[in-house]
Design a protein around this nucleic acid. Structure first.
Lengths: 270, 270
DNA sequence: CTAAGCGATTAACCTATGTTATGGCGACCG
DNA sequence: CGGTCGCCATAACATAGGTTAATCGCTTAG
């Protein structure tokens, strides 16, 4: 089996993403590139998936931003997560028959569309990719859990600070932020829906951070002036950071085709 | 390939759980039963996994209750989810090298312990089980997302009502609730940590529900008197219910060893 | 039997955050 | 060019939920 260096085909965010978890073989890379062949564009504020909708396709976000969100019958809305290039949309909604959440674009986007059949083929024929996919699902769940901690136990100021640090870190990884500058294609209403606050209070809170000299805002361009202090305020957990960046262990463990010489320490906890 | 009826070996919650997603072959069942051979007991209030800990084993809860939770450095704590029999603990923490959350028992429990190696074997040799595992992870994420919606957008009264209905439904599926009665081995402090509220306010809110004649509480025994109204108050989403019960589609799609005649509707949204 | 401790309950008070309302500014439209 | 619309900003006011503190069982330990 020939292994090529981890990395990305220039136009395949899915390869970039899974490739950051494990070194892809040529066969695996070809399979992924083929998956992403059918590309379509969608405008901003377009629903890629609607809560309650029965769905028949899997989509990969190739370019642009989107949010995953759930709504209460009376209209209150909570954003579950931000969807960035390389993220898969609706992979699970399938199995649920009916989507329990919506996915809506924030900017104009490019999505690759493929069938559930092709996904099944992946599970049957590419166990390493299946494991990588499971991993990326786990990573996403870790982010949702962290947001749950925010909504449950962080104050408004802490939540906003935490989100800004999180975004800075996530975007830095994919080269979308440099030296503290990045663009959030997001209204304050969307921040409010993401952090479980009202628009007004988001505004107040951003002002506090501005007046404290921690950030600057020009339209959608955000400049982080003092990351360390922001991270401190938001009680940003470096463990969590660890998660949202690349793992070392996947390759060594599950992803290996042959039984790897496993070095698990059989230590009992406490 | 011989398929046996979906169901459970009497003492294998993992078989019960995965078996509820797809019909297990004998080989698959044998593999799972073998996984669960190494069983240990743990007392209540024991950490099965600790945030920050490096970890080398995978565990399946066989009997009892536990919670998955995350803590802030200053001690504030948020419960992410309740862990019930058949749930897997630390499956992902592995890949993360370091656990980003803790798992603590609420009652005395029985856990089955197996190695990461055995999990790898599952991914390599049993794609259907791998898919079922991915599904069960998705289901869990759906529950976390629903809790996120609660913490972000539901009032205290709604949250508590929603949790009670959720528990009633989840426990009914595994025969741990009948006719509205069930036991929650949980202090009000734990409810508070799960719902992002203070103990005092949990108490106030339970009182309101009691006084409204919707529930009765005797110690840890809860009796739901008016599910319909509770579900209404909690804005309980039947879609969500759909999720926490058994899917029809997994078997038909990903789990099938042969390429299934796929009937995906190529309908574009909107 | 008594002490100690944990959990439930309640009351009084406080504050973080929500709500409502108003104005300003830039972008787009006819 | 004037109007409308979407978003940001700020103030004034309202309230859900947090905090503190005291009491009341139970259960467990001795």
């Amino acid at each position: 089996m020939s292994i090529v260096a981890a990395g990305s085909a220039p136009d395949s965010p899915l390869c970039t993403k899974l490739g950051s978890y494990l070194a892809l073989t040529n066969a695996e890379r070809d399979f992924l590139v083929n998956l992403e062949r059918n590309v379509q564009r969608r405008p901003a504020k377009h629903d890629l998936l609607q809560q309650g909708e029965q769905y028949g396709e899997v989509r990969v976000l190739r370019k642009g931003w989107a949010v995953r969100h759930k709504a209460l019958p009376d209209g209150r809305r909570q954003i579950i997560n931000f969807v960035l290039p390389g993220d898969i949309i609706g992979i699970y909604s399938h199995l649920f028959e009916i989507a329990d959440h919506s996915v809506t674009t924030l900017t104009s986007v490019e999505v690759a569309i493929f069938s559930l059949d092709q996904l099944a083929e992946l599970f049957r024929g590419f166990p390493r990719l299946a494991a990588a996919l499971a991993w990326s699902g786990a990573r996403e769940e870790a982010m949702v859990a962290e947001r749950l901690l925010s909504l449950g136990r962080r104050t408004a100021l802490e939540r906003v600070a935490h989100l800004i640090v999180e975004m800075l870190r996530r975007l830095s990884v994919v080269q979308l932020a440099n030296r503290g500058h990045f663009t959030l294609p997001v209204t304050q209403e969307i921040l409010a829906d993401a952090l479980g606050l009202s628009i007004v209070h988001i505004n107040r809170t951003l002002r506090r951070l501005r007046e404290a000299g921690l950030i600057e805002i020009n339209g959608q361009r955000i400049t982080v002036i003092d990351v360390a202090q922001l991270a401190e305020i938001g009680q940003f957990d470096e463990l969590y950071l660890h998660l949202i960046q690349a793992p070392k262990r996947l390759e060594r463990a599950i992803a290996s085709e042959k039984t790897a010489p496993d070095k698990e320490g059989k230590k009992a906890p406490a």
